[in-house]
Simulated assay, not measured.
Amino acid sequence: MISFNSTQVWVHDQDVALDFYTRVLGMVVRVDVTMPEMNNFRWLTVGPEHQPDIAIVLMKIPGEPIMDEATHAKVEELMGKGHAGFLFFTTDDVDAAYAELSAKGVDFVEKPTDEPYGRDSSFRDPSGNHIRLMTPRQMG
């Protein structure tokens, strides 16, 4: 049996990302481990408190030898355009979540609108990752 466990987004600064995903979005830390034997590599994951089996890896863009300078630059460029990582979140009330997150300083790219699949909006995290927030339409 295969199960979903985690996904990863690139971040410029893991501490800034950690603050955003926990303080602003209300997620909890799953794992935060620094490994000195791996050049102080930090494995940092967060997730919704009510979904303990799901984690988002907040991964700092690596340099050599993992990623050469040209690839690193391409990832940075894609992040700046909001195309290096996408996350899709659902909520019972996207309008209430929009109001709450806007009050916390989140700059939405798209305000909530009605779509065939539900009520949908979008914003970006501090690293530029595109996040969609929606209330799914009840089908049937």
Rank of each mutant, 00 (worst) to 15 (best):
M1I: 08
I2W: 15
I2S: 14
I2D: 15
S6Y: 14
S6V: 02
S6N: 13
T7Y: 03
T7C: 13
T7W: 09
T7K: 04
T7A: 14
Q8N: 14
V9A: 12
V9H: 04
H12Y: 13
D15S: 14
V16H: 11
A17C: 10
D19H: 11
F20H: 00
T22L: 06
M27L: 12
V28S: 11
V29W: 09
V29A: 04
V29Y: 14
R30E: 05
R30L: 09
V31G: 02
D32S: 12
V33G: 00
V33S: 12
P36L: 00
M38W: 13
N39Q: 10
N39G: 05
N39Y: 04
N40Y: 09
R42C: 07
W43N: 03
V46R: 11
V46K: 14
G47F: 11
P48F: 15
Q51H: 14
Q51N: 11
D53A: 15
A55R: 09
V57G: 09
L58E: 12
M59Q: 15
M59G: 14
K60I: 14
I61Y: 09
I61G: 04
G63M: 07
G63C: 00
E64F: 07
E64V: 12
I66V: 15
D68Q: 01
E69Y: 01
E69F: 00
A73E: 08
G80I: 01
K81N: 12
K81S: 07
G82R: 03
G82V: 07
H83M: 12
G85T: 09
F86T: 08
F86R: 15
F86E: 03
F86G: 02
F88G: 07
F89I: 01
T91E: 08
T91D: 01
D93P: 03
V94Q: 03
A96M: 06
A97E: 13
A97G: 06
Y98V: 01
E100R: 12
L101M: 05
L101I: 03
A103T: 02
K104M: 09
K104T: 07
G105P: 01
V106N: 00
V106S: 07
D107A: 13
F108W: 03
F108A: 00
V109A: 10
K111E: 13
T113C: 09
D114T: 15
E115D: 10
E115R: 11
P116L: 14
P116M: 13
Y117S: 11
R119H: 02
R119F: 01
R119W: 10
D120L: 15
S121A: 08
S122T: 01
F123V: 00
P126S: 02
S127V: 04
G128E: 00
G128T: 07
H130W: 14
I131W: 06
R132N: 03
R132C: 06
L133G: 00
M134H: 01
T135S: 04
G140A: 08
G140E: 05
